[in-house]
């Protein structure tokens, strides 16, 4: 008996670090951030509460509104293009091609690199004076223009381009794993029925791999809300505020503008956005799992 309780003590000991991380670093920080967001703190936390005043300020602030609308445009385009492009790549990879391993390596390597690297490479490739624009003009097309990175109305699409370059290989890998799991009998059946392959993929196969597509969508959506490194490296939020995003707004108000209550209100809004993405997903999954079980 004594030995048993000794072993239990070791279990508690082993669980100590993770308890500290969970309770202090994760739950504790979140609560603290929320509490500060309810105060009027500037440089240091002061616990004078004015409740949701910072949220009111935040929602009226043009800089925040621009950041949020940029994020929505960026997010919708990025997710849609990644899913479509990733799905097409996965289908093409599924045609018993030669060199599959090589193509897989090429499509996925950007995902192994830092967002900072991705941002800096595309900044250079899209540099109007030296990059693609200059190269095409050098071929004799003197009026060719591709200067989105310095156009306030176009810079957000540059962000989408670089993010798709980095992330679409991941979608391909996830969806390809899904395609490989599709029952061979299904393919036989569609062949006997004489249904064209290009119709089978969107109308029959896509619903089967929907859970994989949903996983990919959640991963992409969460990375959108987190977007920070790529923006800093690629555009620095510019030109003007054309590519500012909420994560960058929060960081600047925390460390440069010393406006911590406002910054933390922004961080809590980001948390709310993630919860708004995850909760419907969670229930949709439970619902479909129940349906499958019934």
């Amino acid at each position: 008996m004594a030995k048993f309780s000794g072993t239990r003590a070791h279990v508690y000991l082993a669980m100590m670090p993770v308890w500290i991380i969970v309770l202090v670093a994760l739950v504790g920080s979140t609560i603290w951030t929320f509490v500060i967001s309810l105060t009027s703190s500037k440089l240091l936390p002061v616990y004078k509460f004015n409740f949701f005043h910072q949220y009111e300020l935040l929602l009226k602030l043009p800089a925040w509104q621009v950041a949020v609308s940029n994020l929505i445009v960026f997010g919708l385009l990025f997710i849609a293009i990644c899913l479509v492009f990733g799905f097409i790549m996965a289908i093409m990879m599924d045609q018993r091609i030669r060199g599959e391993a090589l193509f897989r390596t090429i499509f996925l390597y950007p995902y192994a690199m830092s967002f900072v690297v991705t941002g800096l490479v595309w900044q250079w490739v899209l540099n109007p004076g030296f990059g693609i624009q200059a190269a095409v003009r050098g071929l004799g097309f003197e009026t060719f223009t591709f200067d989105w990175i310095v156009q306030p109305k176009r810079a957000i699409y540059v962000l989408v381009l670089a993010a798709v370059w980095q992330g679409s290989g991941l979608v391909m890998a996830i969806l390809l794993a899904g395609l490989r799991g599709v029952d061979e009998d299904l393919w036989k059946a569609t062949r006997i029925d004489g249904i064209a392959k290009w119709r089978v993929y969107p109308s029959i196969v896509l619903p089967i791999i929907a859970p994989m597509a949903a996983t990919a969508t959640v991963l992409l959506a969460v990375s959108v809300v987190k977007a920070y490194d790529l923006v800093v490296a690629l555009t620095g939020g510019g030109p003007g505020n054309a590519t500012e995003v909420p994560a960058k707004f929060v960081m600047e108000n925390l460390f440069a503008r010393q406006n911590i209550a406002l910054a933390n209100a922004g961080a809590i809004m980001m948390l709310v956005a993630v919860v708004a993405i995850l909760v419907p997903m969670y229930y949709a999954r439970r619902y479909s799992a129940q349906k499958a079980g019934a």
């Binding site: 994760l26 920080s29 603290w32 951030t33 994560a247 925390l254 922004g266 961080a267």
Partner: peptide
Amino acid sequence: FIPYQVFIYPL
């Protein structure tokens, strides 16, 4: 899934 900005200041 939570954005890191939520934890940064307290940490």
